[in-house]
Each structure stands twice: as C-alpha cells, then as structure tokens.
Nucleic acid binder design. Structure first.
Lengths: 130, 130
DNA sequence: TTTTTATATCTACAAATGTAGATTATAGAG
DNA sequence: CTCTATAATCTACATTTGTAGATATAAAAA
C-alpha cells in the first residue's frame, strides 16, 4: 500500500472489511444508508482505493467489477492508532481505554475477556519488574 | 470551533494541550524534535488553528504572540474517537481496547483503575439487564 | 435486433492540506 | 540612536480530498 487513506476512503474500506467483496454499485448502496452521495463520487473513491492498492479487482459479473480488500484492517489500524493516541490522548492509553469503557457498549463476555487481559498484563509486568 | 482539524493541526494542538501556552517559535522548537519543518510552515498551522478558533492569543512578550488552547482535548477526542472506532475497528470497542492493552504501556495503577471501571460496568449492566 | 438501463470511464473543480520563500517590522543589543 | 536578528505577515503552490456531471458502453430487456 502506497499512501495514506482519507476519511472517506477509510469509510469505504470499512465496508470492504465488513462484506469482503463488493461492486461499486453495492458500495454506493451501503454508503447511502448513512450519507447521500452520488454513485460517481463513490466510484471515484473506489478507483482511488484501487490506485492506492488498498483493494483489488476480484471478479467480474457482466461488466460489473467486484473488488476485495488488498490490505488487512489491522495493518492500517495499528499504525493509525499510534498517531491517534498521541494526537488526541497525549499518548495516554489509559485515558483512551477509560473513555471507551465509559461511552461504548461492551457485553459481559467482552468485559470478562478484557479483565483477563488486564490481569495477565499485570502479572507479566510484576515478573519483569515494570 | 468551526471546522475539522488536519493531522498536522492536531499535532500542534497536542503540543498546546501539553504545555498550555506557547509562542509559534516555541511550537516550532517542539515540533522539530520529531520532524524537520520550517518555521513558516509551523506558523501557518498556528495561524490556521487561530482562524479555526482552536487556539487564541493569550498574551504578548515584545512582539511575540503567545497562544493558548481555546478548546479542550476531550471536546475533539470524543467525537473523533467515534469515527475512528467505526472506520478502523468496525465499531468494536472491545477490539480497540484489546489492542491497546496488548501494545501499549499501562502501569499497575492504570490497570487497577481500568479493572474497577470494568467491574462497575458489568454490575451496572446486570442491573439494567443489558 | 433494437432499445433501455446500469456501469464504467473520463474530466473537472473548489476547498483543504502540507509546505515554505519573501518581505516587513520591531524589540533588544550595542 | 542605529543596527540586527527574530518574529510576524503575506504570498504561493503542488497535492490531496470530496464531490459530481458528461459520456461511452455493454448487458439485459423487449
């Protein structure tokens, strides 16, 4: 992958990550559930994502092109999370996590998984004298 | 505050949030610890932040202008976190938190605070049958 | 086979962004 | 009081981004 992706491009990527394979008309359909944009606009973004090698042509049906992600979500989210944490949370992961716990939905399974991870981290750190 | 802030603008805001009050030369000094940009460039960003009412003139020393944040970090981070979560974590806070726990540093105090918050959330949800 | 319609392709453009040189002005040094 | 260095102001520009109309074209419908 070459370059940074814009917000709109990431919106479209998030659709590809969700449905895995989609044509531009389908992406348009999904996008317009949230905001009204013309087909042309969406297709331009899809083209740019292909240019940037974030998606690739996967198959054809008639002359309709189906695309699929060419990069994994984590390969973008991991570096971007660093920047986000720095710019908006002064590099304090604790603050960011706290805000998520307060404002976002977590079911009990999620919570228990996270509790396990925290406990694990604590003991690891004790061992390594962190 | 009027408009969205760009990445570079957020970089500069993060400095203001950290030091609270700074002149353009000082911001330049701090920014160049990480990347080389000319004073002009930094001053342009500072001007744009003032235009966008994200910072305001706070005092003068000679003809040096000191600026201070005009918006709180949370007032930006809260809405931006929503978008970030949606675009890069498919709206799954659990994933985002997990990644932070795995990759970022948390001291034991942080961890214990978070554990408390999680426990609290779990019991609240039990009560409200979530 | 002709018509219609759905897609793709092409072109365009204003606004935002990252970047910085040139110019002006003034506070502080001497 | 004059000079100088530093900071502000002004101007500029290539690139990216969001946005979409116009046009071509092929598949599907009639």
């Amino acid at each position: 992958m070459n370059k940074k992706l814009s917000d709109f491009e990431l919106d479209v990527m998030s659709i590809f990550w969700r449905v895995n394979k989609a044509s531009a008309p389908q992406v348009h359909e999904l996008i317009t559930e949230n905001k009204e944009v013309s087909y042309s606009t969406v297709k331009t973004i899809v083209d740019r994502l292909e240019q940037k090698s974030a998606i690739k042509r996967e198959s054809l049906q008639g002359r309709t092109i189906f695309y699929a992600p060419a990069i994994k979500q984590e390969s973008l989210s991991t570096p971007l999370l660093k920047g986000f944490l720095r710019r908006l949370f002064s590099n304090r992961p604790q603050q960011l996590i706290a805000q998520l716990i307060e404002n976002e939905e977590l079911n009990n399974d999620d919570i228990e998984k996270l509790e396990k991870m925290l406990a694990e981290k604590k003991s690891t750190q004790r061992k390594s004298k962190k």
